[in-house]
Design a protein around this nucleic acid. Structure first.
Lengths: 200, 200
DNA sequence: ATCATAACTGTAATTATATACAGTATTTAA
DNA sequence: TTAAATACTGTATATAATTACAGTTATGAT
């Protein structure tokens, strides 16, 4: 989306809010009134700009013929992660879940389908969907999505220092994974902020 | 909601669809055109009837001033279940999650907050939200929400016959619960169709 | 220095829309 | 059986709304 000016954002947000509240979009005059414009044409100009920038659809001739262009593809669900590319690469996306359907309190950047049983003692089973937030601060004790030499894994972060990172599976049959970030390729894709299991 | 006539339902569904598709409601003339009315007043009459029956809001004077009355309170989240009443009693409802936010593929009648650790080996932890469907056929092997003498419990249904129901915790520290439905008060509130965990 | 964009005022005309009133015919509930 | 509700036709009109055209002022980019 092309960047909107701050004024255009205000107008855009107002239109979205009106649709949310009233169930239908505002007219030019209603916009003008709220923003103190003395002419409905000021609103018209804004609508044209917003249309040009691709965030609104306007049906000519129709009263209140304004609609929001939704570019929201939804939150991607990542199945198998193919080697050598970013986790969010198109080929990894199994499906998308509309972000309007997000129940979790945290922001969810993507869902990752769990493979294996290494986390069963934390109540994370095979095929569960883990909700991942990319920006949450990685810290000791949290369940992290790590990438070690192109392998994606979900583990509890046990300790972290400049030359040793310890990742702990939550399954007594597995041992801790110790990684030296100086010699191995280690990155964190995000933190687990939720879990979704669908019995189907 | 008062029952709509079949014609009124058609009109109502059309209006909902139009809002979904266009982002704004239809005019009287648009309704009339689609249904083949020769007068926009036929649509006007229908709108008045739908308003009277409480399924539409109409803002007088506003073009396309039609909105859907939403009676959807959302899917209830049940916390502690107080004794002696139905599980869905008002006092048990912790909050509601808009049903539009339901990610799970099955119908979810309510969410139940899990107390205790009796199901941890099935990956169901304390404070998880279990998605419950009331109508799914109760069958051996599924995780059921049972009510024994006014106590609500989540367990795996191990076996079921007319004089013995065995409920199995998924935690080796607990033993099976055996109930005789003839002498004890046993009912099934539903089946677990999903799980939601929010790390917050 | 000039041009495009942004953010408006002001006027005005065409058309889109709501909605009242007067009917008709059929069906449904008291 | 009688009134109310349903489901329309047909006409008409006030007003709601879009939207073009002609300007002004300010700002940032080429």
């Amino acid at each position: 989306m092309i960047n909107l000016t701050s004024r255009q954002s205000e107008i855009f947000e107002f239109i979205k809010k009106e649709i949310e509240i009233n169930g239908y979009p505002p007219t030019r005059s209603e916009i003008a009134k709220v923003f103190g414009f003395k002419s409905p044409n000021a609103a018209e100009d804004h609508l044209k700009a917003l249309k040009k920038k691709g965030v609104l659809n306007i049906v000519s001739g129709a009263s209140r013929g304004i609609s929001i262009v939704k570019e929201d593809l939804g939150i991607p669900v990542i199945g198998l992660v193919s080697a050598g590319g970013p986790i969010l690469a198109q080929e990894n996306i199994e499906k998308r879940i509309p972000s309007s359907q997000n129940i979790l309190s945290h922001g969810v950047d993507f869902y990752l389908r769990v493979k294996g049983d290494s986390m069963i003692e934390a109540g994370i089973l095979e095929n569960d969907l883990i909700a991942v937030n990319k920006k949450t601060q990685i810290k000791k004790g949290s369940i992290v999505i790590a990438r070690i030499n192109d392998e994606v894994t979900v583990k509890t972060l046990k300790s972290i220092s400049s030359d040793l990172v310890v990742l702990q599976p939550e399954n007594s049959n597995y041992s801790n994974i110790e990684v030296n970030p100086k010699t191995e390729d280690l990155s964190f894709e995000g933190t687990c902020v939720g879990l979704l299991r669908d019995f189907s």
